[in-house]
């Protein structure tokens, strides 16, 4: 079967990207350096302490953002409706920024307070967007997207207000984080992401048949036996978990959730039983690659990875918007 071959190629691409990325950087590291080096060799240190954890973080974040986008596209039946474009990332960012600004620091059940407040922010925005889509029966695509834009504006001005009231140092830290970056050292970030991304990914994995039915419209899905409200709740939970967790650690990285599932849909088709693994693999590899570009393009300087994804995602968004009527893009 063709799509099975494509899926295999995607898996290969993901593995090669994940294994190859840590070797590329300001200075290329060869396999021999790592294998022959003693414990205090500088290159081995860079490799194991900086580049490998960074690749893991990028891969986890990319996968999580991509499948979150995939779930939202199915739920709203629109390829432009993703957590980023609907303001959910903005909500998560506000939650995390508030946590930073207040100088809070707590850990609960191994999950950092920043992740939890970002999760709270994301969840609130999801409920708001959902209430908006409910208020007038159906929701036309432009209205939905405009509502998302309005929410994003509102939230970013709230973040600006937080930033303005912060000290110079905190303010800079906030700006840098808001650009979306993966420039953290060590395994802390990856360990923070792991539980939320895995939980969200498992939830969505179990909902593949349900996502397939959501795409054909709520009435028809219900008449096929789908418990639509419950499915939505589970999707909201999974997405706000993942987006909250990822934004708290990496900042709001945009457009991965829009581009990855859409490209995968072209490659393996709209059936979520194949689309899910494809999106998971492609999203992870995609963000890892973007991060490699961010590290080497202007070396020794480093661009935030969110800038790269936005540079790619902006034109992609316009292309989707202009190509055909949005409903027919599935």
């Amino acid at each position: 079967m063709k799509s099975r071959r494509v899926l295999f190629c995607l898996a290969l691409f993901a593995v090669v990207t994940a294994l190859g990325a840590p070797f590329v950087g300001m200075t290329a590291i060869s396999l021999l350096d790592i294998l022959q080096a003693g414990p205090d060799n500088a290159e081995a240190m860079v490799f194991w302490r900086i580049r490998v954890p960074r690749m893991v973080t990028a891969f986890l974040a990319g996968s999580g953002l991509a499948i979150s986008g995939m779930a939202f596209q199915a739920l709203f039946r629109n390829p432009l409706a993703t957590p980023f474009t609907l303001g959910v990332s903005g909500g998560a960012a506000f939650g995390a920024a508030l946590y930073m600004r207040l100088g809070l620091s707590f850990v609960f059940l191994g999950i950092s307070g920043g992740t939890m407040s970002a999760f709270g922010g994301a969840f609130c925005v999801i409920l708001l967007v959902y209430a908006l889509t409910r208020s007038r029966g159906g929701f036309a695509t432009p209205t939905l997207l405009l509502a998302g834009v309005a929410l994003s504006f509102f939230l970013s001005s709230m973040i600006l207000a937080l930033q303005y009231s912060a000290s110079l140092h905190d303010s800079f830290r906030l700006i840098r984080w808001l650009m979306g970056g993966l420039g953290m050292v060590g395994y802390g970030a990856a360990l923070n992401l792991l539980p939320v991304v895995v939980t969200g990914a498992v939830l969505l994995f179990m909902l593949r048949n349900e996502l397939n039915l959501l795409v054909i419209g709520e009435d028809l899905a219900m008449s096929r036996g789908l418990d639509v409200p419950r499915t939505k709740q589970l999707i909201f939970l999974a997405v706000s978990l993942m987006v909250g967790g990822i934004v708290a650690v990496c900042g709001p990285i945009g457009f991965v959730g829009m581009m990855a599932p859409h490209i995968c849909r072209l490659l393996v088709g709209p059936d979520h039983r194949r689309l899910y693994p494809a999106t998971l693999l492609f999203g992870g590899a995609f963000l890892t690659l973007c991060d490699v570009v961010a590290r080497v393009a202007f070396a020794p300087a480093e661009i935030p990875v969110g800038v790269i994804t936005a540079l790619l995602g902006g034109p992609f968004f316009l292309y989707l918007l202009l190509r055909r009527s949005a409903e027919q893009l599935f």
Binding site: V215, D219, L220, G225
Partner: peptide, 21 residues
């Protein structure tokens, strides 16, 4: 919902909705 779907088959109006499959 599932019980209902095993009892009732629904054929919607012509042209209802986009189906990508």
């Amino acid at each position: 919902r599932r019980e209902l779907a095993r009892l009732l088959g629904y054929v919607p109006q012509t042209g209802a909705g986009h189906v990508p499959y």
